[in-house]
Write a protein that binds this DNA or RNA. Structure first.
Length: 605
RNA sequence: GCCGGCUUAGCUCAGUUGGUAGAGCAGUUGAUUUGUAAUCAUCAGGUCGUCGGUUCAAGUCCGACAGCCGGCUCCA
């Protein structure tokens, strides 16, 4: 463990020590360090309250002051079992069983508290110079929903008071750029109970950002030889039985839509709900599904005419809206929703083309990220979990697909990690993952290789040998979804979007009301150039108008007074510099802002 | 879905031990005509998340439900 991890891990033990002093009946599970701090899982009848956290903190301070020494000892499995049986710690006994035979079993003791623990720790409790308990949460034992839910207390610790204060301040700062907060403040999006949980209403200003992003992608698609298509929001269940989405992912889909006639018949038959689900699953009753993915529809477009190897690759793109029944507790602003639009595309290609096409997709994702100045992301190759049965298709194809992705990732020239169990059910994938303001990771861009769906749908193209061949499919979405991406983007820019994305690009501020007609003339000229602009016509002091424009995060303010009007000039104040930048000819300003917009330049900070 | 917390005006929030709802901002109207982050006044705005209960009386106490927030689980 790193020195910081040792401090946090030791703080977790000190917390357990304090909790046992205050609540001696407590059963302990585990208490590891995390990248933000530490936690410990407890089981007791009493529900921890905010006041309890204060008491526990106070007790922890005593333990630290007592300057207890951390001492390691190795014991046999039997000794450890006896020890924790005597202390009535069932979770510890279970954790003990999970330690593989042959591994050393170590205990760490500080003061009166002894924990089953591999280590390592600081030498004395007094080395924990600064800590704070942050929150209480429920957490399943061993992360399994079927197990008992324990109470987890989160905290953090640092080598100095200054570092702790600094961390807490950064946390507070970060929360100011929370997309849910800014989305409300800047009128970007809304979620209304009457519409439904996890369903985003894009307000006019948010819609502009989304439209600009879509334009950006569309432009790239044309350059890279994609065809854009449109497909419906619903499709018959049979389509999804073939693809494998239904009924296997039924619990994460909206309930199928059944026609009125069929419903009446089912009612007459007194069909139970469970029976209905079974009959929907085996095709005895038919219906429509709100589409959870676009792929089956794109597959049908590919399959709508005979294909030759000369046509390949066929690249079909769509901003396709899909619906998934996410658990209510999982919904989160724009980043986890029930209806969302993927900037989706499916590439159908020959096995020989797979490598090149993957790389093309990855480079597109890279371009998207770099255009937006997003450098803080990690690349993850999601592989199948060999022990899980949720994956379809034969192992040889999986092998091929995983290797193709690995090779492409190597050529891409960015560091990546491989993670088992992160694959889609039909194939492995490469994900671009970013963190939100409170450190949660979200998958954005994704590229997936799929040998399975072409087989399920019996797709083929005529090869050079004039025989049918099976195409390979690549699924890819550079943003992932418009909703999640915009959510992350709001936080990335803290609402200060580059000019090309800003809902309002220029605001004209007049020095007095007599200048409003002139300002409106300028406004008309800017609008004619496609620049999003407005005039602040309030009868207020300039300072008040500036303040309003700053709060609205408008990138450029143009101040016009009589002087400027007569000279055909404007006084420019930019969001970046937060001060008057001098007076320029109006036409020159238009030229420079158009250059900034058309080249999608980032704000210089 | 599970554990815990929260829910008062469009927004941010006050509201004592239960006695019948308040501020700032935004909005309206009027005055003011302003040089780089808030001019003044005026008016208007609320079934206190919903439903039920206790009580002479509930924003306040109790219960159910919904939504939100944090975490867990999940995320094709």
């Amino acid at each position: 463990m790193t020195p910081l991890e040792e401090i946090r891990h030791s703080a977790a033990h000190v917390m357990a020590t304090a909790v046992l002093r205050l609540f001696p009946e407590t059963k302990l599970d585990i208490g590891p360090p995390t990248d933000q701090g530490f936690y410990y899982d407890f089981d007791l009848d009493h529900k921890f309250t905010a006041e309890d956290l204060e008491k526990i903190e106070a007790e922890m301070k005593k333990v630290i002051k007592e300057n207890q020494k951390f001492e390691r000892s190795e014991v046999t499995r039997e000794e450890a079992a006896k020890f924790f049986t005597e202390r009535n710690q069932p979770f510890k006994l279970e954790r003990l069983k999970d330690i593989p035979e042959g591994e050393p079993i170590s205990l760490y003791q500080n003061g009166e508290f002894t924990d089953l623990c591999a280590g390592t720790h600081v030498r004395y409790t007094s080395q924990i110079k600064a800590f704070k308990l942050l929150s209480i949460a429920g957490a399943y034992h061993k992360g399994d929903e079927k197990n008992k839910q324990l109470q987890r207390i989160y905290g953090t610790a640092f080598p100095s008071k200054e570092e702790l204060a600094d961390y807490l301040m950064r946390l507070e700062e970060a929360q100011k750029r929370d997309h849910r907060k800014l989305g409300k403040q800047l009128s970007l999006f809304a979620i209304d109970d009457a519409v439904g949980q996890g369903l985003i209403l894009w307000l006019p200003k948010g819609a502009i950002i989304r439209q600009e992003l879509q334009n950006f992608i569309s432009q790239e698609l044309t350059r890279q030889g994609y065809f854009q298509v449109f497909t419906p929001h619903i499709g018959k269940l049979g389509l999804y039985r073939t693809s494998g989405h239904f009924p296997y992912y039924r619990e994460s889909q909206f309930t199928p839509i059944i026609e009125a006639e069929a419903l009446t018949k089912l009612a007459d038959e007194k069909c139970s709900c469970a029976d209905l689900m079974n009959r929907l699953a085996d095709g005895d009753v038919d219906g429509y599904l709100l589409k959870p993915m676009n792929c089956p529809m794109h597959i049908k477009i590919f399959d709508s005419e005979p294909r030759s190897y000369r046509d390949l690759p066929v690249r079909l793109a769509e901003f396709g809206t899909v619906y998934r029944w996410e658990q209510s507790g999982e919904l989160n602003g724009m980043t986890r929703v029930r209806g969302f639009t993927q900037d989706d595309a499916h590439l159908f290609c020959t096995p020989e083309q797979v490598q090149t096409e993957i790389l093309g997709c990855l480079n597109l994702v890279k371009k998207v990220f770099s255009t937006l100045g997003m450098t803080e992301y990690r690349v993850r190759i999601g592989l199948r979990d060999p022990n899980s049965e949720k994956y379809t298709g034969n192992p040889a194809n999986w092998e091929k697909a995983e290797n193709a992705l690995r090779e492409a990732a190597k050529t891409l020239g960015v560091p990546y990690t491989e993670e088992q169990g992160e694959a889609a059910f039909y194939g492995p994938k490469i994900d671009f993952v970013v963190k939100d303001v409170i450190g949660r990771e979200w998958q954005l861009g994704t590229v997936q290789v799929d040998y399975n769906l072409p087989e399920r749908f019996n797709l083929s193209y005529a090869g050079q040998d004039n025989r049918p061949h099976r195409p390979v499919m690549i699924h890819r979405a550079p943003f992932g979804s418009m909703e999640r991406f915009c959510g992350v983007l709001i936080e990335h820019f803290a609402g200060n979007f580059p000019t090309w994305l800003s809902p309002e690009q220029v605001r004209i501020l007049t020095l007095n009301d007599d200048l409003i007609p002139h300002a409106q003339q300028l406004e008309a000229q800017l609008k004619a150039s496609g620049i999003r602009t407005s005039v602040d016509g309030h009868s207020e002091k300039l300072n008040a108008k500036i303040r309003r424009a700053e709060l609205d995060k408008v990138p450029y303010m143009l101040v016009v007074g009589t002087k400027e009007k007569e000279a055909g000039q404007v006084s420019v104040r930019s969001r970046v510099n937060k001060t008057a930048e001098g007076t320029v000819a109006f036409d020159d300003f238009v030229k420079s802002i158009l250059d900034e917009i058309n080249n999608r330049r980032l704000p210089v900070t």
